[in-house]
């Protein structure tokens, strides 16, 4: 998170320390349907990288492969130079890759700040035995985490929701809470699955501003998004997926003018 300065998107042959997430030749088949086919791309430190492509291009599959929810048939995923291929999602998160979901389910029976407290990693109170052997440590950590959670809620300007039931807030607010909670996990790279989907235009602008703010504070982001305006305004570079593999990548301007991309979206295919 400290390397906020490294924002050079032209450096294709950059050294490994510039690459937070490396995806190499990922392949995933579902009963004969090839959802990811030799997909390779890098996400460089400090960027907001967007993963776009027509429906069925394999964006969500790639997300699930990278975050450990699917196991790839072939290929390799590296986070910060560490091979995380085939690890469980919680192990991938341990290596600094945290993802959000397109349609986050609301946590029943919890207040917003309680739901936030699921975010921090390695809480002593999450070990059953520690609850009894070192209750003081649990209380100290809980106090610190609660303060962090309330500070983040304030940064995201949703601190007025802190004691509201998590089930009572709007979809857009839920996405903001999810984003804030993911930040409590202090990720090296944040994977955002359609952050703008189902969010009203006002909140969408707010979300974009928050994502940019996080990025400027040093968080690398990889996002899937259908809202092209949102992508073009926020992301650089953009990786285009089509039929499970990377069609092209580059700056938003370059992508916008690329005939192959237009063709892929309009359904030329072959």
């Amino acid at each position: 998170m400290t390397d906020a300065a490294a924002r050079d998107t032209d450096a294709v042959d950059a050294g490994d320390d510039r690459v937070v997430l490396r995806v190499e030749n990922l392949r995933k088949e579902f009963g004969g349907l090839v959802a990811a086919d030799d997909a390779s791309f890098d996400v460089e430190r400090g960027t907001i990288t967007a993963l776009i492509g027509p429906n069925g291009a394999g964006k969500s599959t790639v997300f699930n492969l990278v975050s450990g929810f699917y196991e790839p048939d072939a290929g390799r995923v590296e986070v910060d130079g560490v091979d995380v291929t085939g690890l469980e999602p919680y192990e991938v998160a341990d290596h600094g890759l945290v993802r959000t979901f397109q349609t986050p389910r609301k946590l029943e029976g919890m207040t917003v700040r309680e739901a936030m407290l699921v975010g921090p990693q390695d809480q002593p109170g999450e070990s059953f035995l520690t609850l009894f052997t070192a209750p003081g440590d649990v209380a100290t950590a809980e106090k610190r985490n609660l303060a962090d959670a309330e500070r983040l809620l304030a940064e995201f300007e949703i601190d007025h929701l802190a004691t509201q039931p998590a089930t009572d807030i709007s979809g857009g607010q839920t996405k903001l809470v999810e984003l804030a909670r993911a930040m409590l996990a202090e990720p090296e790279i944040l994977l955002l699955d359609e952050p703008a989907a189902g969010v009203n235009p006002t909140l969408r602008a707010e979300l974009a501003a928050q994502i940019r703010r996080l990025n400027e504070a040093g968080t690398t982001c990889l996002l899937i998004e259908h809202d092209m305006e949102f992508v073009m305004e926020l992301a650089d570079p953009v990786v285009v997926l089509d039929q499970g593999s990377v069609l092209t990548q580059g700056s938003p301007e370059a992508i916008r003018g690329d005939d192959r991309v237009i063709e892929a979206y309009l359904g030329g295919g072959a």
Binding site: E88, P89, V98, R105, L131
Partner: peptide
């Protein structure tokens, strides 16, 4: 005691959305 602990909180998260707990680094 355990219900209101962080341990219990992870379980309550699992009850609503297990994938969310996994994505947040919990060995569900």
């Amino acid at each position: 005691r355990v219900h209101r602990s962080p341990w219990g909180r992870v379980l309550r998260t699992i009850r609503s959305d297990e994938d969310l707990a996994r994505a947040l680094g919990k060995n569900t």
